[in-house]
Structures are given as structure tokens and as C-alpha cells.
């Protein structure tokens, strides 16, 4: 006869996850089928090939209205004055905003500038970028090398270093504000070691140190992960071949690891520099830019000039952000340049 025995399937177990998945899928397909009723007629009218325009449209609209148009408008704003938000009510002032920013007796001394807070912010930002990125990339590299070794619990340690990345800047600031306060954990440690208590955020140098330390703490896990992935993509055979040729371990690190790691390092460097230039929220909650102007950075200057001060100087803020944008553009172009060179090498 033709009745063939069916293979016996294990009884289906409906776990909670599977149930949730099914629920989600039926919701998803129901919704999408409903949308289909609206969209299929569109396809009949415009034809298959033009459907591409339909698909990019929503993204492009939002992108155009909220990113592209503002970018152009920002440049126009930087040439206008007054306190009105709407551009039709703003007098055209030419380069006055830029002149105001660039009116300095001595560019190396912010005190001699009309917009001294901008220049302080800029110099602080440069200092921050150099030391935050430098320190963070160094620690990320070290941690990546350590995590690349065969270890018990490697996944666990990887997650440990990554965890602070998920915390919001405000939360990070609160955590450390609590630890560093006058009666906090660090001061308790200092006192138990027989030292004096320090009110960290009243001392400019300490404030700068902690701002940099905390942002390294909060961000290094992300770059460690990327660097680790870069290390793991280096073929093992290269090391074996080098060992057969009698290469020293240090030599193989210098001549195999570093060159093959360089593209990843470059990506990390670029991402972290661009991020560091925009430093704002964490520091703003932690120190408010103080003491004095010790931890005042460019984005805080822009934010305050446009939104937080009594007089809302939108034109001046836009001029400052145009300058910031140019700096970012130069950094990006620089990165493309180096990236292309290292591709050739």
C-alpha cells in the first residue's frame, strides 16, 4: 500500500518566547497586510520601477526636513542678528557674528576675546579631546589585548567592560557626583589613608581630571569591543608562520598585530574624536562647566548662547555651530584621507 510512515516529530513545546514570537509575527503580518491594501494600488499607478521612490520617501522627507534643511538654514542664521527665532524677522548682519567671535586681541588668551567663553570652550574641548581620546584608546587597546587571550569567563569580562556604555550620560554623572561628593566614597578612602578630604569640583584641575576619567570609564567598553573584533579577525596562521620563522613574540606583535590592527584603530580613533568634540551632557550635569570655566566646552557654549541665557542669541550660537561643523568636517575629511592611504599601503 502507499501509506508511508511519517517521521515522528517531537511534540511541539510552546515556550513563552515562542508564544511571544508568534504573537508578534501575527501582529506584524496583520498590520503589513492591511498596509498592503493601501500601497498596492499605488504600485499599479506608478509602476514597479518607481516604487523605489516610494520606499525612500518617508526617510528622505524626515531627513530633508529635520537634517538637510536645518543644515542649510544654520548657515543663513549665522549671518543674522536679533533675538527673534523666525528667520523672516531676523535682520541680516553679514559677518557680524563671526567678527564678534573672532574679535580677539590675542587668540591664545581667551580673556582678550569678546566671546571669551567660546574660546575657553574651544581650548577646553581641544584639551579634552587629546587626553580623553588618548587615554581611552590606550586603555581600550590594553583591555582588548587582555580579552583576546584565552580566558575563563571571557564573555563575562567583555560584558563587564561594556556595561557602562549603556548608561545614560545623566546617570553616569549622578553616579560619580555621589561618589566624588564631599562625604563620598573617594573622600572616605582618602581619610582612611590619613589624607585630607578634597572637594573635587571646587578645584579646576581635579574637575578636569574627573571629567576625563569618567568619560573614559563610561565609553571605553564600546571601543574595546570594536578593537577586540579587529584583533580576532587577524588570522591565527600568521602568528604560527612567524613563530616557525623564529620571530620573537614582541616582534610578531610589532609586525603582525599592529599593522593588521591599524584600520580598526583608525575607525576607533575617528569615532572617538568626533564624539569627544561634542562633549556636553555628562559634564553639564556633573560640573555645570565649572568651577569657573574649567570644564566649559563648545557645545555648552552653543546651548547656553541659544537657549539658556536671558537673551537668546541664535545668530551667535549658529555662527559658533558653523565653526564646530567646519571642524568636524575637516576631521572627517582627514579621516577619509588617512583611510584611503592605509588602504593602499
Amino acid at each position: 500500500m502507499t501509506t508511508r510512515s511519517q517521521p515522528v516529530l517531537p511534540p511541539e513545546r510552546l515556550t513563552f518566547g515562542a508564544l511571544l514570537g508568534r504573537l508578534f509575527f501575527s501582529f506584524y503580518s496583520g498590520l503589513m497586510t492591511a498596509v498592503e491594501l493601501v500601497i498596492d494600488p499605488i504600485q499599479r499607478v506608478i509602476g514597479v520601477n518607481r516604487m523605489a521612490y516610494f520606499f525612500v520617501l518617508p526617510n528622505l522627507l524626515i531627513f530633508g526636513i529635520f537634517v538637510l534643511f536645518p543644515m542649510v538654514l544654520n548657515i543663513y542664521y549665522s549671518f543674522t542678528g536679533g533675538v527673534n527665532l523666525f528667520p523672516q524677522n531676523r535682520p541680516f548682519v553679514g559677518l557680524a557674528n563671526f567678527q564678534q567671535i573672532f574679535s580677539c586681541a590675542n587668540f591664545l588668551d581667551p580673556n582678550s576675546c569678546r566671546e571669551d567663553r567660546f574660546w575657553r570652550g574651544l581650548y577646553n574641548t581641544v584639551f579634552y579631546v587629546v587626553f580623553q581620546v588618548g587615554g581611552m584608546v590606550a586603555f581600550s587597546m590594553l583591555t582588548a589585548v587582555v580579552l583576546n587571550r584565552s580566558l575563563l569567563g571571557r564573555g563575562f569580562f567583555r560584558s563587564v567592560f561594556f556595561y557602562p556604555v549603556l548608561l545614560s550620560p545623566v546617570v553616569v554623572a549622578m553616579i560619580w557626583k555621589w561618589i566624588l561628593q564631599r562625604d563620598g566614597l573617594i573622600n572616605a578612602m582618602l581619610v582612611s589613608l590619613g589624607m585630607e578630604r578634597i572637594v573635587f569640583f571646587l578645584h579646576a584641575n581635579w574637575a578636569v581630571f574627573w571629567v576625563i576619567f569618567i568619560s573614559i570609564w563610561a565609553q571605553m567598553g564600546f571601543y574595546t569591543l570594536i578593537l577586540l573584533a579587529g584583533l580576532q579577525s587577524i588570522p591565527r596562521e600568521l602568528y604560527e608562520a612567524a613563530e616557525m620563522d623564529g620571530a620573537h613574540r614582541l616582534q610578531s606583535f610589532r609586525h603582525i598585530t599592529l599593522p593588521l590592527w591599524a584600520p580598526t584603530l583608525l575607525v576607533v580613533l575617528v569615532l572617538s574624536v568626533i564624539r569627544a568634540v561634542q562633549v556636553f551632557d555628562q559634564v553639564w550635569v556633573l560640573t555645570g562647566g565649572g568651577p569657573g570655566t574649567a570644564t566649559l566646552y563648545v557645545v555648552q557654549y552653543i546651548y547656553e548662547t541659544a537657549f539658556a541665557n536671558q537673551i537668546q542669541q541664535f545668530g551667535l550660537a549658529s555662527a559658533a555651530s558653523v565653526i564646530l561643523g567646519v571642524i568636524l568636517l575637516i576631521l572627517t575629511l582627514f579621516q577619509l584621507r588617512i583611510g584611503r592611504q592605509s588602504d593602499i599601503a
Binding site: V56, L60, F63, I65, F66, V67, L68, F69, P70, M71, L73, N74, Y77, L85, F86, P87, I274, Q278, F280, V299, I302, Y303, A306, F307, F314, A317, S318, S321, L324, G325, L328, L329, L331, T332
Partner: peptide, 24 residues
């Protein structure tokens, strides 16, 4: 063109265009 324009703004953070986005 669309792809290049979108890509080129990868590095433009909202902190650079605060005022005009607020206007919009």
C-alpha cells in the same frame, strides 16, 4: 546621490544644528 548625501551627514551631530532644528 541620496546615499552619498545621507552618508555625508553620518558625522553631523544634532549639536551642530540645534537652532534651525528648533526652528523647524
Amino acid at each position: 546621490l541620496i546615499f552619498v548625501v545621507i552618508l555625508s551627514t553620518l558625522m553631523i551631530p544634532i549639536s551642530v544644528i540645534l537652532v534651525p532644528v528648533f526652528l523647524v
